[in-house]
Simulated assay, not measured.
Amino acid sequence: MRLALIGAGRIGKVHAATIAGHPDITLAGVSDFHLPSAQALAELHGSKALSAESIFDDDSIDAILIASSTPTHADYLERAARAGKAVLCEKPIALDLPRTREALTVLASHPVVCALGFNRRHDPQFAALKQGIVDGRIGQLETLAITSRDPSPPPAEYVAASGGLFRDMTIHDFDMARWLLDEPIHFVHAEGSCLVDPAIGEAGDIDTAVITLTTASGRLCQITNSRRAVYGYDQRIEAFGSLGMLQAQNETDTRVRFTGEAGQVEEKPQLFFLERYARAYQHELDNFYTSWRDGTAPMAGADDGLQALRLAEAAERSLREGRRISMSDID
Rank of each mutant, 00 (worst) to 15 (best):
R236H: 05
T72K: 11
F187T: 13
V87F: 02
E157N: 08
M169Y: 10
V188T: 06
I185Y: 04
D32K: 03
Y289E: 14
H186L: 13
L220Y: 01
A49G: 11
P269Q: 10
S47K: 03
S217V: 04
F258N: 10
E261A: 10
P269R: 03
F174H: 03
L144I: 09
V112I: 12
Q307E: 12
I25N: 06
G305L: 05
L107T: 03
R317T: 08
Q307G: 00
G305Q: 08
Q125E: 15
P71L: 11
A177L: 00
S148V: 06
D175L: 03
L246C: 06
T170M: 11
I325G: 07
T70H: 13
I185D: 01
E142P: 06
F187L: 15
A94M: 02
R276I: 15
A229E: 13
K268T: 08
G7W: 03
K91R: 09
P124T: 05
A190T: 01
F272C: 14
F33S: 11
D96H: 02
G136I: 12
S68Q: 00
T100S: 10
A161K: 13
P36A: 02
L3N: 00
L141Y: 10
T143Q: 11
S291I: 01
R2V: 09
K268G: 10
I64M: 02
R99E: 05
I55L: 07
T252G: 01
V87R: 03
P298R: 09
A160W: 11
A308I: 02
G263P: 10
K91Y: 02
A160M: 05
L181C: 04
D135S: 11
R121W: 07
E78A: 12
R257P: 09
A300C: 15
T296Y: 09
S217K: 06
V106Q: 06
A80H: 05
A4T: 05
H45F: 15
A49S: 13
D182E: 07
T18N: 14
H186F: 04
D57H: 04
A42W: 01
R324M: 15
A20M: 03
P71Q: 11
F174W: 00
H22W: 09
R293G: 06
E43G: 04
L274R: 14
E313W: 00
A199L: 08
T296W: 10
P153Q: 05
A20H: 15
D24Q: 10
K48G: 02
G218E: 07
Y158E: 15
I93V: 09
H73N: 07
V87M: 04
G163W: 01
F273C: 04
T296L: 02
R10S: 12
R279C: 08
T208G: 05
E251C: 11
I55W: 08
M169L: 10
N250D: 14
V230E: 12
R120T: 13
Q264G: 13
I61E: 02
P269Y: 01
L77N: 07
F118V: 01
